[in-house]
């Protein structure tokens, strides 16, 4: 799985011929130089390797072991494949719930990725200019990201609450004062996820900052050359800005995919939502582990989630030919 490097054959001695020769001797030949470089590179990787083994490998392998058992947090009494069998049997309640959580997670992730990528890119473009006080404006756009997670959940709930007979949230109070009917926001199945995707507009600042950093990495000489050639704003946008910022856009897409598939923060603020609409996969896993105390099943679900995320990431990387790197 390579990050867009398509020309690995040069690294192997023998070049283009190597793949066609049936002879094994020349196929994977590592020069002395390659070995020396590799050794040096692995020295760089010592901290992360130690961290990987101690902090990541042990918990991961332990929970992988648990997924084949019925560990409940205190003891194990059965070992076998029953957790996985149960999840793939869609007539079982657990399997059905897992399927439902997959559905809501995918809907949310796709909507969120599209919404956030496009909007944060547009916002970054809009704020990438030398205007008076642009620094303050950028700061103001970034401010909502600085509100801690659980507080922002409580604030959004206070803003968007719907109640047929009691305190309504801020926006519904305004609507009622204007004589309009209340909007159901988080309380109805059809509007719950769109409202959640909308609240991510308050978090656009983070992606925007990164994109602004990426834009400033583009040498201004390119723009000047383009302007001299008579290119207008949109031509410059499509031929310079977008291609050269693709590494960061790609990073944003991959991280929002990985983070989105593991959305969990909504549970503390909104619970599982109307008719389990906010029962995302990570929330389902948490409930299975700490409410039903069926830790083994939760681990099995977690590894299925891992496989899904892994496959999707591999697909994303394979189809990342559109990313333009400076070293190609």
């Amino acid at each position: 799985m390579s990050i867009g490097i398509k020309h690995n054959s040069i690294a192997r001695g023998g070049g283009a011929l190597s793949s066609s020769l049936p002879c094994r001797i020349k196929k994977h030949r590592y020069s002395k130089r390659m070995l020396r470089t590799s050794l040096q590179c692995w020295v760089f990787l010592i901290p992360v390797s130690v961290g990987m083994v101690v902090f990541a490998a042990t918990p991961i392998f332990m929970s992988l072991f648990f997924s084949f058992t019925n560990y409940n947090g205190a003891f194990i009494s059965q070992i076998g494949l029953f957790n996985f069998k149960r999840l793939f049997d869609f007539s079982s309640v657990a399997g059905e719930r897992f399927l439902n959580s997959m559905r809501v997670t995918f809907i949310y992730v796709i909507a969120n990725m599209a919404f956030c990528t496009v909007l944060s890119y547009a916002l970054a473009l809009f704020l990438h200019r030398k205007m008076k006080g642009i620094g303050v404006v950028r700061l103001l756009f970034y401010l909502p990201c600085l509100i801690p997670g659980f507080i922002s959940g409580f604030i959004y709930m206070a803003i968007f609450r719907y109640s047929a007979s009691g305190t309504t949230g801020l926006i519904n109070t305004w609507l009622l004062n204007l004589g309009l009917p209340q909007a159901t926001f988080f309380s109805a199945k059809s509007t719950a996820i769109p409202t959640l995707v909308f609240t991510s507009v308050f978090g656009l600042g983070g992606g925007m900052i990164m994109l602004l950093a990426a834009f400033s990495n583009i040498p201004p000489t390119l723009y000047e050359a383009a302007r001299l050639d008579g290119a207008g704003y949109f031509k410059q946008l499509f031929h310079i800005t977008i291609p050269l910022s693709t590494p960061i856009v790609f990073y944003n897409l991959v991280t929002s995919l990985i983070a989105g598939l593991q959305t969990f923060g909504t549970y503390a603020a909104y619970g599982t939502g109307p008719e389990e609409e906010f029962n995302f996969m990570a929330v389902e896993i948490y409930r299975m582990a700490f409410s039903y105390h069926n830790y083994g099943l939760a681990c099995a679900e977690a590894y299925l989630l891992f496989v899904i995320v892994g496959l999707l990431s591999i697909i994303m990387f394979k189809f990342s030919g559109w990313v333009h790197y400076g070293d190609d």
Partner: peptide, 9 residues
């Protein structure tokens, strides 16, 4: 390592 949900770890 990032793809495993934190709850089970």
């Amino acid at each position: 390592t990032v793809m495993v949900p934190a709850s089970v770890l």
